[in-house]
Design a protein around this nucleic acid. Structure first.
Length: 196
DNA sequence: GACCAGATTGTCT
DNA sequence: GACAATCTGGTCA
């Protein structure tokens, strides 16, 4: 039975939420219909103790959402070119977020293809910048509540037990922690996988 | 298939 | 003024 994930799910440590989000479905409601994609890759970002996190230096205007209540979206611009989405977590009294790195497209694929200007399914959402483009997510979605009817995440009982854990991607700091999670063997996982 | 450089702008020092 | 949680397209093999 499809079920929207409640706020209490997000109100835990980022690394736990990141692991548990694998296999769930990220949904955005649009006038033309829903966009749906299964989450196949995530990364956890913690608070002041995590040098790889935007929250490491404490709250700023940009990162204030990460210090707010769990279950909201944190959207930021990367390299001046791409948008990236995070889900705000909590439970430690500190900041925390989970970066959605890759999705497997399920519905609304025509709109994803139009926005991405790509046809291959594996090329629509296989990276944090790509999935934001496919979903049309920008700064306007920063702070959106996942219990609103705009964007939410569902659990459909998918078996996500076969998970690989590695170091995070693209960071200059905080590489020593294993906070990246993805479904083993999934074709929609982003590049940037460790050699081997 | 693997490796490399360029794009481009908000945010922080 | 420098840098960044990335993607793309080029080159070389």
């Amino acid at each position: 039975m499809p079920g929207v994930i409640p706020r209490s799910f997000y109100d835990r440590e980022a690394r736990v939420v990141a692991r548990d989000l694998l296999g769930t479905i990220f949904v955005r409601q649009e006038p033309e219909g829903e966009l749906r994609g299964r989450i196949v890759e995530t990364e956890a970002y913690e608070g002041r103790n995590d040098p790889g996190s935007h929250a490491f230096r404490g709250p700023t205007e940009r990162t204030q959402v990460m210090f707010g209540p769990a279950g909201h979206l944190y959207v930021y611009r990367s390299y001046g070119v791409h948008w990236c989405v995070n889900v705000v977590t909590n439970a430690t009294g500190d900041a925390g977020a989970v970066l959605l790195r890759a999705l497997e497209p399920i519905a609304g694929i025509d709109r994803m293809r139009a926005r991405r200007d790509r046809t291959a399914l594996e090329d629509l959402c296989s990276g944090p910048g790509k999935l934001c483009q496919a979903y049309g997510i920008t700064r306007e979605q920063n702070g959106v509540d996942l219990e609103s009817r705009l964007i939410w995440i569902e659990d459909d009982g998918f078996d996500a037990s076969d998970v690989v854990t590695t170091a995070r991607v693209g960071l200059s700091a905080g590489r020593e922690t294993q906070l990246r999670f993805f479904l083993r063997g999934n074709a929609f996982v982003s590049r940037g996988r460790p050699s081997v």
